[in-house]
Design a protein around this nucleic acid. Sequence first.
DNA 1: GGCTTGCTTGGAGTGCGCTCTAACTCAGTA
DNA 2: TACTGAGTTAGAGCGCACTCCAAGCAAGCC
Lengths: 162, 162
Amino acid sequence: MATLAPIRLDLLTCGQAYSTPVADADRTPRHSISEVAAASGLTAHTLRWYERIGLLDPVDRTHSGQRRYSDADLARLAFLGRLRLTGMSVADQLRYVELARLGNQTYEARHELLVEHREAVRQQLADLHATLAVLDYKIDLYAGKAADAATCATTDRKKQSA
Amino acid sequence: MATLAPIRLDLLTCGQAYSTPVADADRTPRHSISEVAAASGLTAHTLRWYERIGLLDPVDRTHSGQRRYSDADLARLAFLGRLRLTGMSVADQLRYVELARLGNQTYEARHELLVEHREAVRQQLADLHATLAVLDYKIDLYAGKAADAATCATTDRKKQSA
DNA sequence: GGCTTGCTTGGAGTGCGCTCTAACTCAGTA
DNA sequence: TACTGAGTTAGAGCGCACTCCAAGCAAGCC
């Protein structure tokens, strides 16, 4: 069981806040949309769209209506980015976020969702390893064939099966 | 340098031919579209579409116009499936196939393309490993919290940051 | 002959994840 | 006051990778 010691995070830059995976990040509104776009690699358009569909909670605004993201927003974005990198659909990310919004009674459901996704990630890892082996094999083959083709122009023309 | 001894493959089933990565597979037209769909996990629609866009060479037909796929077609499909699993776009797969169609003088270009893609796959592997670590961390956290919630209903309500 | 099954075609449609547009506001600087 | 630049909105549009549709054809079975 994890004990959560509070951490002072007031002085994090946008990039640091984005890459720091903290459970109880600072909620002070701080970062403009362009800073967050730069830190996250998403466009401002996409950040607004994430908020519109509910993937981000409504972001704080300045008195003139401009968004100011907190470190907590950035931490969530970073985690969502991880899920995205592993191929989780926006719909499933949304499902997770909506469970989180419902509070304590959804711990189990979220746990289950993550465990399921971890299995998918493990499957992907296995697929990638297998493909890496195939690529290594093909690349070796091509290295040999390219040397052939360069040194021996009169070699018999075999049909290439990809 | 790879020496390519010819291999007798006449008796392969569709599924075997699909999963056997052979360089000079049999070209005898043999398998119906539904067999290939079952073996490859693609739909018949998708197989026809692949042919239409040039990802597969024109497939042999029976006298009545039905497709009959060879083991070589299946081997290519299997390799394309690997590329797809690693996130290569259809456009890039097409680029590779078109290079293969041009024959010997494109060995180097194909080699380069595969080496580039291998790098992308390695990057993906790194991303997945990193995400797996995050998932493990979160899952442990939730396992603990779920136990809390179950045994201690009066626990203080911490705001959940994802 | 009539029915079913499995296939054919070109082209239209779908779902996803953004991505862009148009018209606008606001703060800051010369 | 004029201009610039960064931001705002709802909604339309786009590229990708399929996915489906309608209409038709050929073979096999009762």
